[in-house]
Amino acid sequence: MSAADLRALLVADHVTHVPGVYDPASAALAVRAGHRAVHLSGAAIAATMLGRPDLGFGAATQIADRAATLVRALGGMPLLADADIGYDSPDHAVWTALAYQRAGISGLCLDDEEDAGRSAARIVAMAGQVPGVTLVVQARGRDLGATVERCRAYAAAGAHAVLPVIADEADDLGRVRAALPGVPLVVSRSETATGGPRLTDAELAALGVRLVLHPLAAVLAALRAASLVYRAILEEGNAERVDRLPLGAFATLTEQAEASVTAAINRIDT
């Protein structure tokens, strides 16, 4: 749960893919797959906890509460969590960062707002008063030039990395990279994105990208599988035709989580 581990990924010379998780079981599966960091998105929390769209219904306290339930399954793997609401002022921002840190969250993925100066003030407060949390800040300018200026301001305020929302093509990322040499870039591979072929990891790394977020891929896959199971049970009385996790693998997920906790405790003791 170390922010230092997350920051190490940001200064590496390669891309790290960061999948979304939403509960202890999905977190344990991400560990088992060999990932080095995971992401808890506001959209995943809104869907799985509230059954609602990601329109600000999920409070920061709910994200922190959910994080506290799943970090045990991560065994020390860094967790990056969305911070869309709950930090209207610098003081509120510090409170949110502290609450996230207590829950075991290593980094915040901060949303942007219309007033870039207010966003920068919050970053200054969090970077100064909660230095143990890594700050990844989204930038949403009206065009690429405005986005670059916001990225520059947020990096100067203390952000450890920036996520230029409208920059996902090579030319756009290249402009951001040229304007902010040495500042790690993060991109989000939204499930709704359309366009041409995606950039390869090597191409992204050359453009300064260090993290690629996949916030909803796992939860969408899980919901799709569940919908097929429910349909099969309704139509056939069983779910045998649907590919599912073997029962034995399901049973070991909790064992894996417990082993991760024990290992983390042993590291602290030594």
Score class of each variant (00 low, 15 high):
Leu207Gln: 10
Gly128Glu: 14
Glu114Tyr: 09
Thr254Ser: 11
Thr134Asp: 04
His35Ala: 10
Ala153Gly: 08
Gln62Val: 13
Leu234Gln: 00
Ala83His: 05
Val183Cys: 11
Glu113Pro: 01
Ile265Cys: 09
Leu253Ile: 10
Glu191Lys: 11
His14Gln: 15
His17Tyr: 09
His35Gln: 10
Val71Lys: 01
Arg32Leu: 11
Pro197Ser: 06
Pro246Ser: 07
Arg231Pro: 10
Arg224Cys: 12
Arg140Pro: 03
Asp13Cys: 03
Val209Ile: 12
Ala239Asn: 08
Leu70His: 10
Asp5Ile: 15
His14Ala: 15
Asp172Gln: 06
Leu10Ser: 02
Pro53Met: 13
Arg150Val: 13
Ser227Val: 04
Arg152His: 03
Ala12Met: 00
Ala155Lys: 05
Met126Ala: 15
Asn238Met: 02
Arg7Cys: 05
Asp82Val: 02
Gln138Asp: 09
Thr254Val: 03
Val137Thr: 15
Leu185Glu: 04
Glu149Val: 13
Thr270Phe: 04
Ala83Cys: 09
Pro90Ala: 06
Arg210Tyr: 13
Arg140Gly: 06
Asp115Phe: 00
Asp172Glu: 07
Ala146Tyr: 05
Gln101Ser: 10
Ala221Pro: 09
Arg122Thr: 09
Leu98Arg: 14
Leu213His: 12
Arg175Gly: 03
Asp5Thr: 15
Ala97Thr: 05
Ala93Thr: 10
Ala263Val: 02
Val209Tyr: 08
His39Tyr: 13
His92Glu: 15
Ser119Thr: 14
Gly208Arg: 03
Val124Ser: 07
His160Thr: 14
Gly174Val: 09
His14Met: 09
